[in-house]
């Protein structure tokens, strides 16, 4: 659905995005993560045909934005980082104005305005000026605006920013529901738990792509795993036995709990369990601690920064 090939954007001497390549499949939720100034918004702007790349190639539905910009703009919706609305127009007026720029019939415009205002709980306030709306209401209205023409591709830059937990949950549920309607979602977020709960794949970027993978692949990218074992009774006496096993390090015991790091879990985990059972330990549970996206993200960004320093 979206293809970027060696995409680069330079502003004078500053490189905002450096030779990034990726592909987003139809009805995929694809998340872009990265620190401030990593080039996320610049990439969205290039994909949304708002700005042109300095070099590289973009294909949307197999079409080049340079020759097909009008068509591409008609099939994409965008929620910008700072989604402004006309404060002196009503919620209905704002949506009607923006919908007017797409080649939609009047009855479809009316139907969609009603559908999205009701969906985002704004229908009862449709005739009120946007100036009277809270930040969260404006954000929901901006989301409705991005969807008004039922785009095939939706670019969302921080979609839940400024929303209360209930509204943020509703928006997340809505984003997940778009998948069923075959909408491709390109999500830019700082909210890592949001990215991990919504995304099919995650792309960590800092001017260039640091890692592009599914959440599962990201969680498995590290060679070492952290394991927590809870025993019945004191766990201290088993530490010595466990140290004899290869591929185990950073082992510690506290009360009835043993924490350790290991590599080659397929072979090492059975060895640990066997050793403990053979030595009379009663295992209450054995748990491999999955790293959160936040941990992985921070680690990748940290290693990227130290690589930069070394270079």
């Amino acid at each position: 659905m979206i293809k970027a090939l060696n995409l680069t954007k330079k502003y004078g001497k500053l490189t905002a995005v450096d030779k990034i390549s990726f592909e987003v499949k139809k009805s995929e939720i694809f998340s872009f993560l990265g620190p401030n100034g990593a080039g996320k918004t610049t990439t969205i702007r290039m994909l949304a045909t708002l700005i042109g790349p300095s070099s590289g190639k973009i294909l949307i539905e197999g079409k080049s934005p340079i020759k097909n910009s009008d068509y591409i703009r008609s099939i994409i919706g965008i929620l910008t980082e700072t989604p402004g609305m006309y404060e002196k127009l009503s919620a209905y007026g704002n949506l009607k104005y923006f919908a007017g720029f797409y080649n939609l019939k009047q009855d479809r415009i009316k139907k969609n305005i009603e559908k999205f205002l009701k969906m985002f709980d704004l229908w009862d306030r449709r005739d009120e000026l946007v100036a009277t709306f809270s930040k969260g209401m404006k954000q929901k209205l901006a989301l409705a605006r991005a969807l008004i023409h039922e785009p095939k591709i939706l670019f969302l830059d921080e979609p839940t920013s400024g929303l209360d937990p209930e509204s943020a949950h509703m928006v997340r549920e809505f984003i997940l529901s778009l998948k069923k309607e075959d909408t491709t979602v390109f999500l830019c977020t700082h909210n890592l738990s949001e990215a991990s709960s919504l995304s099919d794949r995650v792309c960590i970027i800092n001017k260039e792509i640091i890692r592009l993978a599914s959440l599962k692949e990201l969680q498995n990218y590290k060679k070492t795993r952290n394991v927590e074992i809870v025993l019945k009774g004191n766990s201290n006496k088993y530490i010595g036995d466990l140290k004899e096993i290869d591929n185990i390090f950073d082992i510690s015991a506290k009360g009835n709990k043993i924490s350790l790091s290991l590599s080659d879990p397929k072979n090492t985990n059975p060895k640990i369990i066997r050793k403990l059972v053979n030595n009379g330990a009663e295992i209450i549970y054995f748990n491999e601690i999955k790293e959160s996206l936040e941990d992985i993200y921070l680690e990748l960004i940290k290693s990227e920064k130290s690589d930069e320093k070394r270079a």
Binding site: L50, R73, I78, T82, P83, F98
Partner: peptide
């Protein structure tokens, strides 16, 4: 301006 420019 940006949302407006994102339309056709």
């Amino acid at each position: 301006l940006e949302p407006l420019l994102a339309t056709p």
